[in-house]
Design a binder for these strands. Structure first.
Lengths: 103, 103
DNA sequence: TCAGTATGGTTTGCAATGCAAACCAGTTTG
DNA sequence: CAAACTGGTTTGCATTGCAAACCATACTGA
């Protein structure tokens, strides 16, 4: 157990939140998803999902694209390159944490 | 990537907080530590450390023992069995998350 | 002796968070 | 044309994480 536990606090708090990690993990795989797909996969409430997406958008991690599919509104979400980078960095950080708490 | 991302939200929020994870990780190793040791190792501010310890105590994860070393007050912290269990569970959960975001 | 500083913490103040309920605009159905 | 559904956003609120301020006691030096 190296004493540099302090690195724990460097973890990306935006992605450390489980709800947002779910979202980003999904977007990392599917490239593009609509709001309702995320809603179903994550089990979040709509309000909650909406709020998390806004936060991810504010951070530049996801792109929110509103349009219409026929007459019904549809919101398409995708991970930006910045978001993908952040996700990869977070994975690394988390593996570092695991390594330190697992000895 | 199994779609059971929802398990992400089951993670123990108390330990998911990096500051508290540092504390518990330390206590898991050293068995007993005083306040100032934790202060140095974690790099937290005193107020912060105090607050996190209170929270961990409220959850039954750590025991707080105040006494005197000579004439100066000393606060000894130790992980309870409950806390150790929670720590082990959290490790498992975190490994599960890692596995799901790493494919 | 008593002002100043150090030790070992706790309390306070505050902005930011996560969550669900309420809400809203538009669309389809009976 | 009222009711219910779709696809979300906004609101309200309790909880958090953080640092600064504070507090009690002990030691130090002039």
């Amino acid at each position: 157990m190296s004493s540099d536990l302090r690195s724990f606090t460097e973890v990306d708090r935006l992605l450390h939140e489980p709800a947002r990690l779910m979202i980003v993990t999904l977007l990392a795989v599917v490239a593009e998803a609509d709001f309702l797909f995320l809603l179903n996969q994550t089990g979040l409430t709509k309000g909650n999902l909406s709020a998390h997406l806004s936060k991810l958008e504010a951070a530049g991690y996801v792109e929110i694209n509103k349009s219409y599919r026929g007459k019904i509104p549809i919101t398409l979400l995708s991970l930006t390159p910045t978001g993908m980078d952040a996700f990869n960095t977070y994975r690394k950080q988390l593996r570092g944490i695991i390594a330190r708490i697992s000895d």
